[in-house]
């Protein structure tokens, strides 16, 4: 039996609910979960003050309602499944190392910052700094997968060291800024200054984009690894056309102000 939390009182200021994860609630009944302390602005409250709780914690947690003012959901989780039926606030899955988070709606900024494993699936849009390093930190996500079916905003994958970020829609500016390794795929339009300061890693755009002058054009080719990645995305219900799997991509290398070992692949019609 899964644990189900339904919001009965929308918070006036953000709730910080990092203790609400499927792994931390394993073995807890509804009373115990209702008593978990969470932060409401500058006051400590309990889960029961805002949510009706049903079921028992067995590694699967469902939250329902407008959670756009609930921050840090799934933070640090290492296993289990977290399903959010609605929108969700910032810092979703921050530092998570395993398990799965699925959002039916939209997410705020800072999705999966500095995560090291697991999977986040957002069926709507997300805001800034998806899969990024926190300010002052040089390294963003070191593993795991973030799939966003809608749009993302600026600095997606900032400082990313490993893992995969996919945006089914458009991305904002500075995609993959200061990237160290890993893969970012943007199926829609990609903003400007992508890959600024990147050392290694791969950014893929399905549409022409303006390149920084510190990137160099190499060649057109069909990367075999991308065939496998795009096929895997098809199975995740992303809209991938066959010509994107079999077609050629421009390869640009950069950023030459850094190691020049990163690459941006741009699909050619």
């Amino acid at each position: 039996m899964s644990l189900e939390l339904s919001m009965h009182t929308p918070p006036e200021v953000p709730l910080e609910a990092e203790l609400l994860t499927p792994d931390r609630t394993v073995g807890m009944d509804s009373n115990a979960v209702s008593g978990i302390a969470i932060q409401h602005g500058n006051r400590q409250v309990t889960v029961g003050d805002f949510f009706t709780v049903k079921g028992k914690g067995e590694g699967e947690l469902h939250l329902e309602g407008d959670l756009s003012r609930v921050k840090h959901l799934g933070s640090g989780m290492s296993s289990g499944s977290l399903y959010i039926h609605g929108d969700v606030g910032e810092h979703l899955g921050a530092g998570m190392s395993g398990g799965k988070i699925v959002i039916d709606g939209n997410a705020g900024s800072w999705v999966g910052p500095e995560m090291s494993g697991g999977r986040i699936i957002i069926k709507g849009d997300a805001k800034h700094l998806v899969g990024s390093a926190y300010r002052g930190s040089a390294v963003g996500i070191t593993g795991g997968e973030i799939y966003i079916h809608g749009n993302v905003k600026n600095e997606t994958g900032h400082g990313m060291r490993n893992g995969l970020i996919v945006a089914g829609g458009n991305s904002g500016d500075f995609t993959g800024v200061n990237m160290l390794a890993g893969t970012i795929i943007v199926l829609g339009e990609m903003g400007i200054r992508s890959g600024a300061g990147m050392k290694r890693g791969t950014i893929i755009s399905m549409h022409p984009t303006e390149m920084l002058p510190t990137f160099s054009y190499n060649c057109d080719f069909n990367p075999i690894f991308l065939r496998l990645m795009l096929r895997a995305l098809q199975s995740q219900n992303f809209n991938i056309e066959d010509k994107q799997i079999t077609g050629k991509y421009q390869r640009w290398s950069g950023d030459s102000v850094e190691m020049n070992r990163g690459e941006i692949l741009i699909f050619r019609e």
């Binding site: 995969l164 893969t183 290694r200 791969t202 690894f225 496998l228 990645m229 895997a232 070992r261």
Partner: peptide, 8 residues
């Protein structure tokens, strides 16, 4: 110049 990718 080699690089790796982890896919599934």
């Amino acid at each position: 110049y080699q690089s790796s990718k982890k896919i599934q």
